[in-house]
């Protein structure tokens, strides 16, 4: 077992004026682990995710990532170009709304290829080949490669967003409600796909969701948030089956069966 955490989060705090977004969050994520973050609406899940992914600047704390080149580095102290490079190579971010993570005016193949070009790929044939390969992996027919995502269903758009994000072989994927807004059968298919990709590519992932069934199936570990604070954390099945904190007990008991 490796002893270096892929991501070490220490004391991350973000305030919106006097209002707390998230407060004093710390944890370590190891390679290959999938962590879920659950909690009621407004509990600070997206705030925390965006602070970790470099989209928001926290007021305090450290987000240390084990970079491929230089080993562990605090991403909050990196220069903007360094952090941008990280988010194109080692990191990926899957938005709840596919349109926030896709370029809607560009073809499906272009959406995937663009990510490769951003990290230096130049050979057109190779780029198109990878794009088609990735469309296949997320079960989008090759015949749709030149179509724009506006012509895709919500589930297909979400799968395209995942392909666009994973084509560069990231090591850490942030996901904010990746199955939100999709109907249940489409969700199941997406969950299965995410799970296989995580296992086959050895990815680590942090998944924000309000759906405990999603977390049960995808996440090894779970963090429960309330009013910006982490109230309980542990193995997913420990937290769901033997919740210690009053809020977690309420959350679990208000769901019929997960």
């Amino acid at each position: 077992m490796t002893d270096t955490a892929l991501l070490s989060v220490r004391g991350v705090t973000k305030r919106y004026g006097a209002h707390i977004g998230c407060a004093d969050v710390s944890f370590d994520l190891y390679p290959g682990e999938v962590m879920g973050i659950v909690g009621e609406s407004g509990s600070g899940k997206s705030t925390l995710l965006n602070c970790m992914a470099g989209h928001l600047e926290p007021d305090a704390g450290a987000v240390v990532f084990d970079t491929a080149v230089d080993g562990p580095r605090d991403t909050l102290l990196m220069s903007e170009p360094e952090r941008r490079m990280l988010s194109r190579t080692d990191w990926a971010f899957v938005h709840q709304h596919a349109r926030d993570g896709l370029r809607m005016g560009v073809s499906a193949g272009g959406n995937v290829g663009e990510r490769l070009m951003a990290v230096g790929a130049r050979h057109y044939g190779d780029i198109r080949g990878s794009a088609i390969d990735w469309l296949g992996r997320v079960e989008i027919n090759e015949a749709r490669v030149d179509d724009r995502p506006t012509t895709f269903s919500g589930g297909m758009q979400q799968r395209l967003q995942i392909a666009r994000n994973l084509v560069t072989g990231p090591r850490l994927v942030f996901m904010d409600e990746p199955t939100g807004g999709l109907d249940v059968s489409v969700q199941a298919r997406l969950l299965d796909m995410i799970r296989s990709l995580v296992r086959d590519m050895g990815l680590s992932a942090i998944i924000v969701t309000h759906d405990l069934a999603v977390v049960r199936l995808l996440a090894d570990r779970l963090m429960v948030m309330k009013s910006g604070h982490v109230v309980e954390a542990g193995l997913t099945d420990q937290v769901l089956d033997d919740p210690k904190h009053a809020y977690t007990q309420l959350l679990v008991s208000s769901i019929l069966q997960v």
Partner: peptide
């Protein structure tokens, strides 16, 4: 049994 699996703490 659940404690032996690490499910209950």
């Amino acid at each position: 049994m659940r404690m032996l699996y690490g499910n209950y703490r």
